[in-house]
Design a protein around this nucleic acid. Structure first.
Length: 256
DNA sequence: ATGACTCCCAGTGGGAGA
């Protein structure tokens, strides 16, 4: 099983790149973030023609998520049960016996703002729901754009970013509390190249200079940990014309 | 350096992203 996550930063713009990547990488399931499309505008026909079933949940301008899978997903849940939210940020389904949660975590803007407080509330809501979800679905994968750089080694300039959004103690504490539910960061199960990022600012030639953050993450439950074989950030799509600012991340699990 | 780029909706500018 190959599972992937990609913040496409507008599916309207990135659809051709998505179709290319699906054809090349053949993931069994892929979650998308920042589709930025209302449900009536979602390009499901093109995705289905590429051999994927798809569930989607979006809104105008911001946010929007989708779950693509070769085998249709079942038991779909949109957003976080028990947490009222105006924004389309989470889509969950079961594929091949795995509970797949695709999430677009709030950005949070800056500590001390209303958006930061919303991020904290959202993270609490996610954790409370995931605790229950893990109890009923031990084989669970939470993946997406976390908008949290878990540790300093996930930041190109940890001194400059200290205390800044994505790197605050509060955000990292929430990340650790998710892990403490019984999840593991698949990327860190393996030796990885230093300076591995999943996002590079569009400004400042950041990609060329490899100045980025690792904020796109795949967490697998303890029940799946032993099955994880590989976890890769695929930088290739960031080299496309008109790329997303995020790279896809994928994980390969031993088929069982 | 309250920047830089990209996307969106609006409407010839501005918010948001991270």
């Amino acid at each position: 099983m190959k599972l992937a996550t990609w913040n496409v930063n507008s599916l309207a713009v990135r659809l051709p790149q998505l179709l290319d990547w699906l054809a090349e990488q053949q993931p069994d399931a892929l979650v998308l973030q920042e589709t930025k499309l209302t449900d009536d505008k979602f390009p499901h026909a093109e995705i289905e023609a590429a051999g994927y079933a798809v569930q989607w949940f979006g809104q105008k301008t911001y946010n929007g998520v989708a779950l693509l899978s070769k085998a249709p997903a079942t038991d779909i849940v949109r957003n976080i049960p028990g947490f009222a939210d105006e924004m389309a940020r989470v889509i969950t389904g079961t594929v091949g016996g795995l509970r797949i949660v695709g999430a677009y975590f709030p950005n949070g803007q800056a500590p001390g703002t209303e958006k930061f407080e919303y991020k904290m509330q959202w993270l609490r809501g996610l954790r409370d729901w995931l605790r229950e979800e893990l109890a009923t679905h031990p084989k669970l994968v939470l993946m997406g754009d976390f908008n949290i750089a878990p540790e300093d080694r996930d930041v190109f300039d940890p001194v400059a970013w200290a205390g800044q959004i994505h790197c605050t103690d509060e955000e990292r504490d929430h990340f650790r509390k998710l892990v403490e539910l019984g999840l593991v960061d698949a990327f860190r199960l393996f030796e990885q190249p230093p300076k591995s990022w999943s996002w590079w600012d569009y400004r400042n030639l950041a990609f060329r200079k490899n100045q980025g953050l690792r904020i796109d993450v795949i967490l697998v439950s303890e029940a799946l940990k032993a099955a994880v074989r590989e976890c890769v950030i695929d930088k290739a799509p960031r080299k496309n014309e008109r790329p997303s600012d995020h790279a896809p991340v994928w994980v390969r699990l031993e088929s069982a």
